[in-house]
Amino acid sequence: MLHTVNKSPFESSSLKTCLSLARSGSDVLLIEDGVYGALAGSAHASLVAEALEAVRVYALEPDLKARGLSGDRLIPGIEVVGYDGFVDLACTNDKIQNWL
């Protein structure tokens, strides 16, 4: 199952809720302000680092770039994908939960 999160973890509980309900083996894609959840060294980084043991976490490159975040600032293990990768994730997973 593909989960998307589009809110900063600093203003919303979406990421926390998503990670607490996503089953092991799920794909979690951070988009829009959700990409702030991918930042290494942040107050929420340990939450994401822990989740990486059970789920795959991706961050959308155009949204990272738009916010001045480069790949070397991200929590190790997070994979960066473009919109083509987003489409692939939406195909390979048989259902999608957008945490709005």
């Binding site: 589009n6 988009i31 829009e32 155009p62 949204d63 473009g82 919109y83 083509d84 987003f86 489409v87 939406a90």
Partner: peptide
């Protein structure tokens, strides 16, 4: 986001 996703799809 929706527009970019649709174009990519």
């Amino acid at each position: 986001s929706a527009y970019q996703f649709i174009r990519a799809a």
